[in-house]
Amino acid sequence: MQQSHTVSAYDEELKSLANGIAAMGGHAERMVEQAVAALAGDDAGLAQKVIADDPFLDRTQREIDDKAIRIIARRQPMAGDLREIIGAIRISGDLERVGDLGKNIAKRVVAISGGPRPIGAFRGMQALSELALNQLKEVLDAYAERSVDRIDSIRDRDNEIDAIYTSLFRELLTYMMEDPRNISPCTHLLFCAKNVERIGDHATNIAETVYHIATGSLMSMDRPKDDKSHQVVMQGK
């Protein structure tokens, strides 16, 4: 990116790798967005569309892996180029997982559609997914700019996602205790919330990869601690 190589085909190969990531990123963002919209609006049709979109991500990820291996074999990249290529492999892996998690949310939408809907929990889900999507957008923007100015704050944002996830976990348990008919939608929502929280984790991974690509050094280990939902226990009445 920074300087051009003597062999211009090499530049083009690197460029096409980055473009692949761009396409994957846009697709993954769109899938998560639509999956959550389908969840909030009880829209099984939209959910089906999200499920149908997933193979594109799998295919593109394979293409990126393949291209990356070819470049490594042919050009024997060093330093920044090598980081760029390895980074592309890792980011494409993360994005593919993000897509899978989006697809999983969509599948659950289809499963619970038409049943009872605890309204409050859906609001919480939207707040959670907004945070996760925002984080994903910011790391991909940082990747586009190869800038690390905001990486720290993006990574720390994961704390907020974890906190809201823990709170949502607690809320869903309450709904289930109130009314056994809520158990089935709430269990699905619990998994949806977990999926969104995982999306935030993948965004954090991408942030670390971008940092490595841009600076050549690894981010410090003191990554935000995980959520506290494993400590949540509800006392029966």
Binding site: A18, A22, A23, H27, E29, L140, A142, A144, E145, R150
Partner: peptide, 19 residues
């Protein structure tokens, strides 16, 4: 923001339609 000259537009505007 953040957007500066030199960065890839495909990476910045990632929706499938923009691609």
């Amino acid at each position: 923001a953040p957007m500066t000259a030199g960065a890839s537009v495909q990476l910045k505007f990632r929706t499938p339609e923009m691609q």
